[in-house]
Structures are given as structure tokens and as C-alpha cells.
């Protein structure tokens, strides 16, 4: 038998070539079909990201465009208008009523929106903190209105303030008995009464 002293090398090279060709072939199959080799990412991932469901609707979703209960739509529109008038106009309904998806999903009502009447809700934004901007209204027992009515931090804010238009004082019948002055004082200064 007369074999070349390099025959094992040739065989090795063939083996390596097979490995490399196999790799190139597998790689060709494995690259995602929508791969953008210039910008180097999978274009389909953009579409996939768009599919992520939304949880927050924003105030525009509270107008009830898809809601069938006309009575409720009217009520929401009133609230929207009320909020839009007062000093809470920059707020989102979802700030206080929770995310839309917990309330309405697939255009169907799944649960009532959260209604939180605790002081914690207001104090989340209005508690006095040194770090807050000085011009932001913060709860202060010494402030004119509060000092006048001996307001403690434990006193329900909603007794006096309407959450949707806090400058305007709440005029609920049962509450107004407790704080007749507050109501009258505020209605007179503000010229607006919540109905």
C-alpha cells in the first residue's frame, strides 16, 4: 500500500470543510426570516412589541365611546367636564380610579372602577414634603382654610373637598350638616357648587 504522507491531513481538511459547510447551512436556516442585516435586528420584533396589551386608557377612554349604558356615559362626561374645569384638570382619572384594564377590558365592563375615599389617596400627592416643589399645594393644618376649620390630617378630605374639583367644596347633604360653614364659605368664594 502506498499512501501519501499527507493523506490524513487531507482527510482532516475534508472533515473540517464538512463541519464549516454544515455550520453555514444551519446558520442560513437559523437566521430569523425578518432579520435586517444592516441595522442588525429582527424586524418582526417591532410588530410583536406592538401587540402588548394596554392597561391604561388615558382620560380619552373615559368618555365612553364604546360604552352602551348611556346613563353612565353621561355621568362620566360630567365628571370629565368637572375635572377639566378645576385645579385637578391635569390629573388622569386613573390616578384615583385605577387602570382602565381593571375596569373595562375588550370593551366590556369587568369590574367597577376603584373608588378610594381614604385620605391616603389625597395625601399621596398632597402630603407635605420638603422635597416637593414649593408652589405645589400641600396639606397644611396652618393654611387659611384648614386653620379656620381646625382640620387635622385624619379628617376626611372629602368632607370638604370634592375630589374632581377640589377647590369646590363638597356639598353632600349628610356632610354639609357637619361642615355647614365650609360649604357656604367655599361656595361663596368659588361661586361654583357641585350638583
Amino acid at each position: 500500500m502506498n499512501i501519501s504522507p499527507r493523506s490524513h491531513i487531507y482527510r482532516l481538511i475534508v472533515l473540517l470543510v464538512i463541519v464549516v459547510v454544515g455550520f453555514v447551512a444551519v446558520r442560513g436556516l437559523a437566521i430569523p426570516s425578518s432579520w435586517d442585516s444592516e441595522n442588525f435586528y429582527r424586524l418582526d420584533s417591532l410588530e410583536e412589541l406592538k401587540l402588548q396589551p394596554m392597561h391604561l386608557g388615558g382620560n380619552e377612554s373615559c368618555g365612553g365611546a364604546s360604552c352602551h349604558d348611556q346613563e353612565r356615559v353621561a355621568k362620566h362626561k360630567t365628571q370629565l367636564a368637572t375635572v377639566g374645569r378645576g385645579s385637578h384638570k391635569g390629573l388622569a382619572c386613573e390616578n384615583c380610579h385605577g387602570p382602565l384594564s381593571a375596569h373595562v377590558s375588550d370593551d366590556k365592563k369587568v369590574a367597577s372602577a376603584v373608588i378610594d375615599r381614604e385620605n391616603k389617596l389625597c395625601l399621596n400627592c398632597h402630603a407635605q414634603l420638603v422635597s416637593r416643589p414649593k408652589d405645589f399645594p400641600q396639606f397644611d393644618t396652618e393654611a387659611n382654610g384648614h386653620w379656620y376649620f381646625d382640620v387635622e390630617i385624619t379628617k376626611p378630605c372629602l368632607d370638604c373637598h370634592s375630589p374632581h374639583n377640589p377647590r369646590q367644596m363638597a356639598a353632600k347633604k349628610d356632610k354639609s350638616k357637619k361642615q355647614p360653614k365650609a360649604t357656604s364659605e367655599q361656595t361663596s368664594t368659588n361661586g361654583e357648587v357641585q350638583l
Binding site: 392597561h55 391604561l56 388615558g58 385637578h88 391635569g90 390629573l91 388622569a92 386613573e94 390616578n95 400627592c125 405645589f136
Partner: peptide, 9 residues
């Protein structure tokens, strides 16, 4: 979402 809910812009 964060922009939507920010009360003070």
C-alpha cells in the same frame, strides 16, 4: 403610561 398619569406634567 407614565406621561399619561403624571399629575403635574
Amino acid at each position: 403610561a407614565c406621561v399619561t398619569v403624571c399629575p403635574t406634567q
